[in-house]
Amino acid sequence: MSTPSTGSRGLGARLYRGLSSVPMWAFALVWLLPSLGLFVNSFRTRDGQRGSGFWRTVPDQFTIENYQTVFEANTVNSLGVSLLNSLAISIPATIIPISIAAFAAYGFAWIDFKGRKWLFIITVSILAIPLQVALIPLLKMYVGGAHLTLPFIGKTLTFIPAWGINGTSTAVWLTHTGFAMPFAIFLLHNYISSLPKDIFESARIDGADHFTIFWRLVLPLSIPVLAAFAIFQFLWTWNDFLIALTMIGSANPDALPTTVAIANLAGDFGRNEHLLPAGAFVQAFVPLVVFFALQRYFVRGLLAGSIKG
């Protein structure tokens, strides 16, 4: 589709070609405008931000005080601490699901067992389940453990003791791990099941067992899709608000991730409004770096995850 439009010739054609990218750039600039405004305002003084729009910035309004303030330990929610809290959630919530889902994806793709097809269909169909349906019982489980009372005889068995992990980052990344499973399996399965069948057959003939095939062949071959999922999951867990808010709450400064921290800042009804651009930019900085550095993998993962859906 890259051929220029037919029709007019000469100057008209050149003009047409030049003009044909105008909608694209107009669109792109409109989309960029909000982020740009945020970035500019994050470097303006309180009075500057309140006095005029970001497009009227003058040099003497420049300050980095906003950034200093949001990192200070004794403001309402120090972003420094919550950045670390976010890492403590995102890192485990990215690493753990990858390994578990990779096993399962291989199992679904290349091990023949009874009920494989239906188990896979169930796995993929729960992709669409809204997280909300699991939140109340999960929080109850984190607070009080999981027990089953046997029917008729009234004896209670304990499967999970009352850990009381609500309010900690453990509860959040554990939840993310469980919720990530269906999508991770779906994405990795799409890729692993499309690996050429020959390599598996020849490896089997050479006497390799499933474990060896998985470890020596499939894992190295799957690096691109593993990277794609890792980026996905990292962005998702870093940017998550609902699960963190439910499992940690909004008033627990010890464990707040960045999203809850800036949402709290935004809830102050204007008192700290001049700090919001800096806070929001700090919150978005890590995912933006990941996004721009690894965009290629991200796009690949996006495509693999939805074209076949």
């Binding site: 982020s35 405004g37 608000f241 800036i262 929001a280 919150q283 990941v290």
Partner: peptide, 17 residues
């Protein structure tokens, strides 16, 4: 790019800017 920004961040951006 907005795909990389959290919903919370995006809401703050639009509300303010």
């Amino acid at each position: 790019m907005p795909m990389a920004i959290s919903f919370v961040g995006a809401s703050i951006i639009w509300r303010l800017i």
